[in-house]
């Protein structure tokens, strides 16, 4: 029987640099590896890895395996899986960590099934049980209405981790580690998907993930127009961004990129203003990390008031313009 040892992070690059999620995974992986008294390694597979391998060491990796291949420029399961499967078999880690990202959601379940092991997706917390040395995996379930703790004896124990759930280590350029170019061939004849086109929808203004204030509208907005007028005016005043619950995105009132929640973006601004949003668990799963939540809803019983710190009951058509104009006055004076 193979011996499983150490922690392997499947890293990602964003715009040629080490992605922030990978820093978070390395921070978490470092803690787990130290508790196990084992190594932390990181896989970086891309068209070109460049300086990111050194960054991965600065953020805590003992070993960085790099794989560079034109077929890895854009993520495609059939090419990435060949690399991840081969490396996982060669390195034989006890734990594999992957980001709950566009790539990770797609890669992790397939890798786990290919390796014959289980994966726990979207974890918020990971630790090592000192008695059994097993990975203790905690994730939200039932749309955020509960949390579940899982363990698995099938190796490697694989988990994906939600963005911003873990903290990266302080970057330390003096950290020592080894960069190992891994010799892994990709059989491109096995790539059964073809990316015909990648279309980026330009975000105007501040990116949702970076905005200190988010003014978010729900199904109760009734259509696309108030997102561009009433909500935008308030967001602009507060140097924030406009967001939405799922129905406005599904209905095409706003771009899919503004959809916040369990199946949309996870945001944690200083201030989240939820307008005409009922506060379903699947929505608040994406905004409950906000420092302060303010709710405006015509229904005094709406669940969002259970999440909020301040609330006003009323129709948004009346509340928001009055709120914005008073705020303008106060901010000017």
């Amino acid at each position: 029987m193979a011996e499983y040892k150490g922690v392997l992070v499947c890293g990602e690059l964003a715009d040629g640099k080490l992605a922030s999620i990978t820093g978070e995974l390395l921070g978490c992986g470092r803690k787990l590896a130290d508790e196990l008294k084992e190594n932390l390694s990181c896989l970086l597979a891309s068209g070109a890895v460049g300086e990111a391998s050194k960054e991965a060491i600065a953020f805590g990796a003992d070993k960085v395996y790099t794989v560079e291949h034109p077929a890895l420029k854009e993520y495609q399961a059939d090419s990435y899986l060949q690399v991840a499967e081969k490396l996982a078999k060669d390195v034989s880690p006890r734990v594999i960590l992957i980001g709950q990202t566009s790539m990770g959601r797609d890669l992790a379940p397939r890798l786990a099934f290919r390796l014959g092991t289980s994966v726990t997706t979207d974890c918020l917390n990971l630790s090592i049980d000192p008695a059994t040395k097993l990975l203790v995996q905690t994730r939200p379930v039932y749309g955020g209405n509960a949390q579940a703790v899982f363990t698995s004896e099938s190796m490697p124990q694989t988990a994906t981790v939600r963005a911003k759930a873990m903290s990266p280590l302080e970057r330390d350029a003096s950290r020592k580690g080894e960069v190992i170019p891994a010799k892994i061939d990709i059989d491109t004849s096995k790539v059964r998907t073809k990316i015909v086109e990648t279309v980026k929808e330009e975000a105007v203004g501040i990116k949702l993930e970076d905005a200190p204030v988010i003014v978010s509208g729900g199904r109760g907005m009734g259509g696309p127009q108030p997102f561009q007028t009433i909500l935008k005016e308030l967001a602009d005043l507060l140097h924030g961004a406009v967001g939405a619950s799922r129905p406005p995105a599904d209905n095409g009132w706003v771009s899919e990129a503004l959809h916040i929640g369990l199946t949309g973006k996870i945001v944690a601004p200083d201030i989240y203003i939820a307008i005409a949003i009922s506060g379903a668990s699947q929505h608040t799963a994406g905004c409950s990390g906000s420092k302060h939540i303010i709710a405006i809803n015509k229904d005094p019983e709406a669940n969002i008031f259970r999440e909020a710190e301040f609330g006003v009951v009323g129709k948004y058509e009346e509340v928001v313009p009055a709120f914005t104009s008073k705020l303008k006055e106060l901010l000017a004076g």
Binding site: T101, K194, I195, E197, T198, V199, K200, A203, E256, K265
Partner: peptide, 10 residues
């Protein structure tokens, strides 16, 4: 995808 979409043929 997070900031748009891809057209994929399979």
């Amino acid at each position: 995808i997070p900031d748009g979409y891809q057209v994929i043929e399979l």
